[in-house]
Design a protein around this nucleic acid. Structure first.
Lengths: 226, 226
DNA sequence: TTGATTTCAGGAAAAATTCCCATGACTAAA
DNA sequence: TTTAGTCATGGGAATTTTTCCTGAAATCAA
């Protein structure tokens, strides 16, 4: 057996990091575990320790998970990133893989599944959570784009889409993405065009209906629908 | 000190539960820790073990955190629920407390804060995360109700609000309401001001969270106003 | 009646958006 | 290697939307 797996854990929630550490330490193949709260420090720690695998949460403050993935990959093309997300929507899976991650699992998995994913990714393979992989396969086979028009958005457009859907102004989104205001304007126009919508409100509705935005209180909404 | 604190942990993510267990076991005042993946089983386990405190995640599949709180409280009015959420929006705090929870903290807290919250709630007090409590106090003091600013909209403003929330453009809304475009613009500005929002996307989000959708005619609006 | 509030809307100014264009980077095909 | 295509980025000008201020008419409660 080779050396132990060095892990970099990126998640803004201390509780969640503690959970991962507990799970990971069940295996004797895992060595040092470094932790980062956000994307910025993750990049720095990555360079410093050269971990065998990065386990990353998607929804983080600051630059966010997607941008973090892109940066890590642009620095080191062989960077092995396993995304662990609370989202079980297919849109995310495809996006994340496109961005350069090597694996995707949701957080409601057993330690065993997590470790299986870690081994796979750390040894250079890919790992998509079986249930999601199934759905993905079906979707692809049935010729229907994963989530219709949203899939047609370019990666950058998707970034902008997410921020706008969350209620950010064009200016705020530009700042968050470190882009010119005009660029975001142009992306926004393209997004509206592709999705066939006119207002930001529609954009937010599309996002919520696709489950891209967590609406927090689904139960009471379900009640209203009846 | 009396007997140890019996905890019921409700979160659909195994990793997160593991994190809590790690944090909680740092204290010798915590005794048994039971776990539930979702609201349904939480109710059952609650009856079975009568825990001193329930630590609950908000965003869960199935009945969801919100509904779970209501059920637990309706069964046992003295049920002590500490909500631990990834959301740091005030809306959630107030709604959760209204639903009957006794505490609210976000997930990016230290073990110490978590334990402080657990002690407080378990011993019959309440605990709101300090930072959020601050904001809440400020909001209340400045007279702006947190969640139901919608109540402050005038009837006409509410009409406009509903249309915009459904994705209509200002022009379309004006036509639908037989108003001048400028009038609708002005109403929109007033609405944004009252709700403290900047974009139509936010408007749509507020509407979804309040469960207001496709309520065009005045009759159903009158119902909502009560 | 009086004062407060709501509804309506116009004009001028400010801000946001669209549309068109150009650049550089990258990729896939010929 | 050349070519063609896409993507991301943003500038400039024109256009559209929104804000802000103003006032008039209507309603309502005290």
């Amino acid at each position: 057996m080779t050396a132990k797996i060095v892990v970099l854990l990126v998640d803004d929630h201390a509780v969640v990091r503690a959970g991962y550490k507990t799970f990971l330490s069940l295996s004797d193949k895992v060595g040092m575990i470094y932790e980062a709260e956000r994307g910025e420090s993750a990049c720095q720690l990555y360079n410093q320790y050269q971990p065998d695998i990065v386990i990353m949460d998607l929804s983080m403050p600051g630059m966010g998970g997607f941008e973090s993935i892109r940066r890590l990959v642009s620095r080191d093309a062989h960077c092995k990133i396993l995304v662990s997300s609370i989202h079980n929507e297919l849109v995310y899976v495809t996006r994340v893989i496109k961005a350069g991650a090597k694996g995707y699992i949701t957080k409601n998995n057993s330690p065993e599944t997590l470790m299986a994913a870690v081994y796979q990714v750390a040894s250079g393979n890919t790992f998509i959570e079986p249930a999601l992989a199934q759905q993905l396969a079906i979707n692809v086979a049935s010729e229907r784009g994963v989530s219709n028009q949203i899939e047609e958005l370019s990666p950058r457009e998707f970034d902008v889409f997410c921020l706008l859907a969350n209620g950010l102004t064009t200016r705020d989104a530009a700042e968050k993405l470190c882009l010119s205001y005009k660029t975001v304007c142009n992306h926004t126009t393209a997004i509206k065009e592709k999705l066939g919508i006119k207002t930001l409100a529609e954009l937010a509705l599309v996002a919520t209906r696709q489950g891209i935005l967590e609406t927090f209180d689904r139960s009471s909404m379900a009640m209203l629908e009846k």
